[in-house]
Design a binder for these strands. Sequence first.
DNA 1: CTCTGTGGTGAGAGCGCTTTCACGACCCCG
DNA 2: CGGGGTCGTGAAAGCGCTCTCACCACAGAG
Lengths: 344, 344
Amino acid sequence: MHGPRPTLEAVAAHAGVSRATVSRVVNGGAGVRKSLRDRVQASVAELGYVPNSAARSLVTRRTGAVAVVIAEPETRVFSDPFFAQQLRGISRELAACDTQLLLMLLEGRTDYDRIGRYLAGGHVDGALMFSLHRDDPLPSMANASGLPTVFGGRPGWPGAEDDPDLLYVDTDNRGGARQAVEHLRRRGRRRIAVITGPLDQTSALDRLDGYLDALGLTEPDPALIAHGDFTAEGGERAMAELLDRSPGLDAVFAGNDLTATGALRTLRARGLRVPQDVAVVGYDDLEQAAWAEPALTTVRQDIQGMGRMMAELLLRRLGLADASGVGRPAPVVTPARLVVRASS
Amino acid sequence: MHGPRPTLEAVAAHAGVSRATVSRVVNGGAGVRKSLRDRVQASVAELGYVPNSAARSLVTRRTGAVAVVIAEPETRVFSDPFFAQQLRGISRELAACDTQLLLMLLEGRTDYDRIGRYLAGGHVDGALMFSLHRDDPLPSMANASGLPTVFGGRPGWPGAEDDPDLLYVDTDNRGGARQAVEHLRRRGRRRIAVITGPLDQTSALDRLDGYLDALGLTEPDPALIAHGDFTAEGGERAMAELLDRSPGLDAVFAGNDLTATGALRTLRARGLRVPQDVAVVGYDDLEQAAWAEPALTTVRQDIQGMGRMMAELLLRRLGLADASGVGRPAPVVTPARLVVRASS
DNA sequence: CTCTGTGGTGAGAGCGCTTTCACGACCCCG
DNA sequence: CGGGGTCGTGAAAGCGCTCTCACCACAGAG
């Protein structure tokens, strides 16, 4: 069954035409008479011809593949369906354009060399990069190699905002956080604490800014802020700190749902009732949020859609997307929406 | 910075040798005098030469890439960190052998054609396939195309076990389930119910068999079995069914942790105490299991390790792995271990 | 009837690499 | 000192494809 796969040559011979004609037909068939085109297509079908992508990309200088780089050595990737959902969105969009998805998961610092070399090596036409921290070397690598790149989340490195060609997809973290905290205020909460995420990520920073916005502050009250790391353990710890420092707090805005889960755990351990004594709001609307006890009020974002948009942006920059996306590709910020449940 | 990338030719000229010699050096340097080798390596470094993979695989007939096919149109992928962890294991192993990971997420039935064509098209050297249900067309596609393939989970299609070349990595679902149920019996539980997973997957079947083993049965008691689908909602529903049918049950073995979470929810809603009234055991040891209320007794498996092993098996079959793995590659079944927590 | 288009087709170069093969240098043994 | 190795190196032939360019046939204009 799987002997030597037929080549263009074989199809040409079978159809009684030249290689060039077969090539034309395979690539859209423009400028080939209908009768010939049909004959060639029949031969292609009969022989089960599939173009050799290596040969093709050798001459076209395009690989038909895009790298998805996830630089998250932490355990976060495991517990957080975030990436899985984004990947699905990306995968769907790329598949529609017959583009392959090359997944690169970074572990240690040494991986950066490997990835950098790979990206610079012209093995892919573009890259999607995720969860970069402020000092991540990846963006500059991509930039230096001239590889078209779209970032997941607003890039935070110095000067990023000034680059007119920078492409990213972010969610309105600041607006979402503002909604969450305004909601707490409307419910009559007055001592609203915050547990941040890692502040070298713009998402965590933006959420903190949204919190400040809603309270009309420019600086957080030192007694009502604690730093987490977007994990449940971090949330547990930070909540404990907050309670020790400010026993009178009546609400907490957690940097994400995992953090909120940890906070709930600490509150339960200390015998505080949610939401009667302390209201809790998370962020992300993970599936677990709805299942938490009590069900978590949180902020929802269209994660899968963000993935799809990243892919679309990149495809447009590569000149591959459908004509639907008109104009120059530009950064996208998607809306966030409060989901009120039992915890607030 | 990113003008035309240097070719072999350029390096050869720079080092004052022939293309052939540069090629030899780049590919290990066997049979090249030390002095020349050093000179070539210096040139490679200076010019920043990276081999063009398209050209290389055109002649070697190897792509240096492996497809990871995840056929799970359900929502399961989202809520379950299972795949993320396996992917990490796979990624790590492949990276060590400089092999790329091509991720293919299947959605609808039409995707099967696309993937089938792609796999048959010689774009990858091998494939890893996940979560196949009994009637999945993918395996036969892979088989027909002669593409070396390793499966995640024991394949369940008819005749699978007879194929001496079949490669898979599975965990000892039956043994794990047996441990879990024996544990419940040791704790004095007598009416132990079971919530199964989707029975077209071998993992769900094997866990059910392990349950039967531990109870010394060949047939489940119809009053003590309910069918779930490996989701929390399914667990919730199945638990309700069981309680309606057998109010006197004192323990339940859930097909996986998500199912167990749902069961916990139903039990709580009905005012039953866990573990006093009903003991609950899950399977998988997801992070959420430890965080459930009460913390879930469950069965742990080395998920990341399974991913690593799948990759290793494939690499060995492709003749790429280190010499460490001696002998013919063969299916692997990894052990499962009971983790006792508060819920039982 | 010749000249200029026009549209369809084929010949052939060449993408950057690996790999065979031939060749020269060198060594050892007789 | 000559024959038969071994070892290291370079020349060159492709791998399967795209794409330029030349070519041919035919149409319409002069």
